[in-house]
Design a binder for these strands. Structure first.
Lengths: 195, 195, 195, 195
DNA sequence: CATGAATGAGCTTTCATTCAT
DNA sequence: CATGAATGAAAGCTCATTCAT
């Protein structure tokens, strides 16, 4: 008698999420079909629905996974020797290609129409702003940045800069990888600079 | 037999574009159907296809029109008494609701999948950056802003901030209308400030 | 400029309803697919949905058409020289094959699960009972049947007999066409007989 | 290695049939899925298919069982002190809710499409009519009912009344539990009454 | 110039059934 | 005996697009 193997199950779910990620990256949330994802994940539609109850559920899981990744990322940044410097480096560095940035923008767009995604995004945004605000408070305590800046709106503005960089990567990928990077670093430094 | 009337023809195209704009604003490029647009434009699908050869063509034309409008907007800003101040005011002021901001983000996303839209976007991004760079150069000549900033990358960064504000309007509409606005103004002023 | 032709539209709807009737008769409401109906009606699915917004809507329309037909039928019965005799003849006479009787039974079954069909059936049943009760009252006034019978429950019972005859046609088609018929006539006559 | 245990096997089959009965009662033969039945029977699909080779086989077995139960029921009625009175009481009394009546009607409907079920139904209809005819003959011998009635067609008609009562329970549950009952008793009494 | 009919591929999802363990 | 993974062929429905008038 074979019992359900939760490890294997989790692997399958990951397999689907990765396949979905590739498809969504290529064609967007709306543009990629379940059939595409099945093909990419080498899995029949019936089986895919064994693991996710709907396409929206896949998008939701993927979004949440993205949030978790971002959070982990931030954790590393904040635990590095110079969190602020690391953060600035991170934002400007458009390491991920336009496709990946596009996915986040698509999520923003989708959240404007699909309530379930809107809920996840709201949560996501709140969490990110929270982490950024914490980073800012620490830097203020250390006197690294302007202590008169209000952490919360400032964090929101930094998030806007991050999203803006995504847009830059789409509008002009070349620039985003060269002079744009330096300019963004300057932008953030001047914005936050202790005085 | 009546001959084609180019003026009437152009009016019809505008009518369709306006209807499409409302539909796309409401439901997104993918979410709005040709049927929706026909209904909104009080026009049959057969007739609509007389003016636009495909849905993508409508999106392209709308993108074109939207960007042209933005360019005209900038022109006005630059010809105002205090172009720089007007610009800053303009960016931070999230006058248009999230729906309208969403549409621009949707255009960015769509440009990532549809080459013809990518071409239009690229062209217009270049034009916008050009105008911004010109604005920056003027301000530098007048000594209003830091003269060591390189106009082109700085213009790209300002454009990123504009797009970032759109994202902010989607992520947290309330904040974007209040504290976020002030923070963004501060961001731009500090970035450009003459020293 | 061609205008919508309501006559042609109505013909199309009829064409679909007839095709659906044949399919439902053959395979039942659940068993017959939209695709089957499209094939039978020589029409693409897209077009079919131009005329009916869902499969349930087709079933509903068909049910209502059936009611109208039954009502017309009753009208004729009641306006004949000997309404009561005509009615008895009518009930026993299993003119329509088992397939057609099956369809009504299927409707009963379906109404137990699909609220929209339940609503139509309820309406249908009420109308039929009303007509039967009227017939009974007339016959009582003429002294043709037992005047002590309460029209409403008696009408319900006659309707049960009609449905029972449908079941008989399914259980044993041959008998239903021969000795069963005579027995049912006797049943009704004895039930209603003036005393 | 363990040998097959026929008793345990039979228990399992019963377990499945009971679960299926509940599901079918709730959602109909077509509406209930194998997955539903598995869930209700706390059994995996693979295992279920070990006991029944298809969904139709389950329906067939259930039909068989249901009809066998009805036959047993009749046996009891016929061995009671006053078989005829007991029978009349039985028919009119809509003890089982509409769901249960629905299931029998669904069987009739299904028999119209699935030959294997049609065969079972035919067989059982014959058996039921046989029992009813026997009941009638006994009553005739005792002078309790009209001796001129032909037992076979009369039995078929009584069966039709039984099915008709099921339909009544679906068409108007309230009536079927009140005035309808009395009317049906009257119907049968007048039909059979000795003269 | 304009209509609405008509198409057909494709969408998400379900489900009876089989397979590997 | 028993599990749950896995399949794949539908299902109902939508929609960009073309056609006939």
């Amino acid at each position: 008698m074979r019992r359900a193997d939760p490890i294997r199950q989790e692997q399958r779910r990951q397999q689907i999420l990765e396949a979905a990620g590739r498809c969504f990256m290529r064609d967007g949330f709306r543009g990629a079909s379940i059939s595409d994802i099945c093909h990419e994940a080498k899995m029949s539609p019936g089986h895919l629905y064994h693991y996710f109850e709907s396409k929206d559920a896949i998008i939701a899981a993927l979004t949440q996974a993205g949030l978790a990744q971002a959070a982990a990322h931030f954790d590393r940044v904040m635990n590095s020797a110079h969190p602020l410097a690391a953060f600035i480096e991170e934002v400007a560095n458009a390491r991920y290609g336009p496709a990946s940035q596009l996915l986040v923008l698509d999520m923003l767009v989708e959240s404007g129409r699909v309530p379930s995604i809107a809920a996840i995004l709201r949560e996501h945004s709140r969490a990110l702003r929270g982490m950024l605000a914490k980073l800012l408070r620490q830097a203020q305590e250390r006197g690294e940045i302007d202590s008169s800046l209000e952490p919360d709106p400032t964090a929101a503005t930094l998030l806007a800069i991050i999203d803006g960089c995504r847009a830059m990567a789409v509008r002009d990928p070349k620039l985003a990888r060269t002079a744009g990077q330096e300019s963004v670093k300057l932008l953030i430094r001047r914005f936050l600079k202790a005085r």
